[in-house]
Structure formats: C-alpha cells, structure tokens
C-alpha cells in the first residue's frame, strides 16, 4: 500500500484513501464538438504509459475529496512530488535532482 502525500491535507495518507485517476495534464479540448476522430483518439485513448517518471492524477476520495496531481516513478513506485490540480507540471529534472540529494 503506497503512502501518498495529499497536498490539501498536507499529510501522507495510506493509498486506500485514494483513487488513481489516470494520466495528468491531458486537457479537455475546448472545441469538443468539432474534434476530429484522430484528435479524439489522442485525447481519450492514447496514453504515455512511461517507464520512469509519470504525471498522474489521484483523488483523495476517502479523505478531502480533492483531485490532485503527482509525479511518480513507475519503476520504483516512489513519488517525487504531489501538487494541486490546475498547477503546471513541475520541472522534472529539478525534482529528480532534489530527490537525488535528499535520498
């Protein structure tokens, strides 16, 4: 069971309070009605599925109820950061460097 830092509760909480909500930073296109099939495929189906650091969404569903974003390494399952929904992607290199020195 992972331990996840909720940026709203400002605490690490056990994974079973959370629900994973897929890849982060996939914005819903503005002109949905005019979206091509290709663009829809890219938006709705194609996923990074990276081996390494991924940006992903979680919801603290059995906690504060908020959606937020996380950077996690999918090889080690370690979190590099969590941050509030709507905030921009943090700089990955800086995060990695920071984790590298503190570990």
């Amino acid at each position: 069971m992972l331990l996840i830092h909720c940026p709203y509760c400002a605490e690490e909480r056990p994974e079973i309070e959370f629900r994973h909500a897929g890849e982060a930073h996939i914005a819903r296109p503005d002109a949905m009605a005019d979206l091509s099939e290709e663009a829809f495929q890219g938006y709705f189906f194609i996923r990074d599925n990276r081996k390494g650091e991924v940006f992903e969404r979680w919801r603290h569903i059995h906690g504060c109820g908020r959606f937020f974003n996380a950077v996690r390494n999918t090889i080690t399952d370690k979190f590099l950061a969590t941050y509030e929904a709507g905030k921009p992607k943090p700089d990955l290199d800086a995060l990695k460097a920071q984790k590298g020195t503190s570990a």
Binding site: C9, R13, P14, I16, E17, H62, G63, C64, G65
Partner: peptide, 10 residues
C-alpha cells in the same frame, strides 16, 4: 478529525 476508511467503508 478526518474522513478515512474503516474496514470496507468510508
């Protein structure tokens, strides 16, 4: 106080 999990419920 906290919303959380108890066994299989919230």
């Amino acid at each position: 106080c906290s919303r959380t999990v108890l066994g299989k419920i919230e």
